[in-house]
């Protein structure tokens, strides 16, 4: 008998011999035939990695990414059949891998790739609009609660993460400057896009999403980030469709 445990054992480890009990059509040992499954598993998982991590791949190049993916799929096979969720362990993996840990920002680059994909598959929602805000009485606005849209993601980074994304993924973009950048990812219609958040922006959005009323969130951030520019952050959040109003109707 060839158990699935034995069959699996040799799949992701080429050093393990072909399991017993497998043959060709004439009863000869399976040999190279088993390698078809070995190859299918590894190649399909590595292809999933290529799709999932475009920025990481651009940063380290095809050859090194291939090496990284080979090591990663052996260490972290998927935990569910939802391949759209595969690779969540990659940021920590690259931060601890001897070959890559000198590239300090690679972990955050992987987090950005993950957040872009999560945003792509997130639920649809009607965004909070400037028009809706302008209809509100100031005291109502100050008491209002807003939430992040399901497709909105916020990444805090000690690296110029937005600049790194832009320089590698957008033609003719400027070189990254040595600054810390928090990144806002939003999705207008179907394609997620990152933006650099101004100072205090990430904390402000997080406060709103945690249920802090609009006025209190503004006061909170002014209190700890003196250069916080409410108008700039609000304009950016509305233009990028980062927010929803919890009282607004669910889209069909």
């Amino acid at each position: 008998m060839t158990s699935q445990r034995a069959f699996r054992e040799a799949l992701l480890n080429p050093a393990t011999p072909v399991p017993d009990g497998l043959c060709d059509g004439k009863g000869q040992s399976a040999g190279r035939r088993y390698a078809v499954y070995r190859n299918n598993v590894t190649v399909s998982l590595k292809e999933a990695m290529v799709t999932a991590f475009p920025l990481v791949r651009k940063l380290i190049g095809r050859q090194l990414f291939d090496q990284l993916a080979t090591e990663f799929v052996r260490a972290h096979p998927p935990r569910t059949p939802l391949m759209m969720a595969y690779g969540a362990e990659l940021p920590r993996f690259v931060e601890n891998a001897p070959t890559f840990k000198h590239i300090g920002y690679l972990g955050d680059a992987a987090r950005l790739d993950l957040a872009m994909r999560a945003s792509y598959h997130a639920a649809d929602a009607d965004p909070l609009t400037a028009a809706a805000l302008s209809e509100m009485e100031p005291e109502d606005l100050w008491q209002s609660h807003f939430k992040l849209a399901p497709a909105t993601r916020i990444l805090r980074s000690p690296w110029p993460l937005f600049d790194i994304w832009q320089y590698n993924m957008v033609p003719d973009a400027p070189k990254p400057q040595p600054v810390q950048q928090d990144v806002l990812i939003t999705r207008i219609d179907f394609d997620p896009a990152p933006l650099a958040l101004p100072a205090g922006g990430a904390d402000w959005l997080a406060a709103l999403d945690a249920g802090t009323p609009f006025g209190a969130a503004n006061d909170l951030i002014f209190g700890c980030v003196p250069e916080f520019d409410l108008a700039a952050c609000l304009t950016l959040a509305l233009t990028a469709q980062a927010l929803i109003s919890p009282s607004s109707k669910e889209p069909k």
Binding site: V41, S44, L45, P78, T80
Partner: peptide, 10 residues
């Protein structure tokens, strides 16, 4: 197999 999904038809 167990908690692993191998992404191939075995």
């Amino acid at each position: 197999h167990g908690s692993e999904f191998l992404n191939d038809l075995l």
